[in-house]
Amino acid sequence: MSVIDDWLQYYPSLLSGLWVSVRLAALSLCIGMPLGLPFALGSGATSRPLRLCTIALVEIGRGIPALVVLQLVYFGLPSVHLTLSSFVAATVALALTTAAYTSEILRGGLQAVPAGEVEAAHALGMSQRDTLRFIVLPQGIRVAIPPLMGLSILIFQATSLAYTIALPELLSQAYSVGSATFRYMSILGLAGLFYAAITIPASWLSERVEKRMARHL
């Protein structure tokens, strides 16, 4: 079948694109997720101006499509004398997007810790910092793990948007092969399967983790 022939002939270049996508996703997540924590804490701050500022930033970060952030970072920053390569620009853009969504997820996790426990910690004379460190964060982050896994899968999918800033990731590779050979359907099909080969097992894993954590509660 010619579809299989196409696949056998062009899978190496798609694979190299996939590798770029994976690296981009991993780096964006490693930078973006920790970045989300201070924003999550700020969203629950007692000081009203800090809280409102943080929430506004997070909502804006979540409201802007990742695609727009990519364009702004790659095409826009050179105007202020900051020119980044497409990989670095993509990393910055996706890391910012990750941070915004992580912040919301972590906030939910931190809020899920029963208020009574926080009160008990305060009644024991524990400081706000210690309460956060020993009581709220350990439990809150644990609760946030399944949705964070879901977010990771979405960010990996979002790496396909870097096609628009000339990053040679999986979709770009598939498209160049397709435009050279006009075998769009089979090549794009293979690219799709490569994406699925990562996202589908990842979401199964995420579901298992979620079930296991629900059991322990």
Binding site: L171, G178, L188, G189, A191, Y195, T199, I200
Partner: peptide, 23 residues
């Protein structure tokens, strides 16, 4: 469902427009 949700939207878009659209 798994395939539709597991493959990025832009890839599906290209698949429909360039892939199916070719034939």
């Amino acid at each position: 469902i798994e395939l539709l949700r597991g493959i990025p939207p832009i890839v599906w878009l290209f698949f429909v427009f360039f892939g199916v659209g070719n034939s």
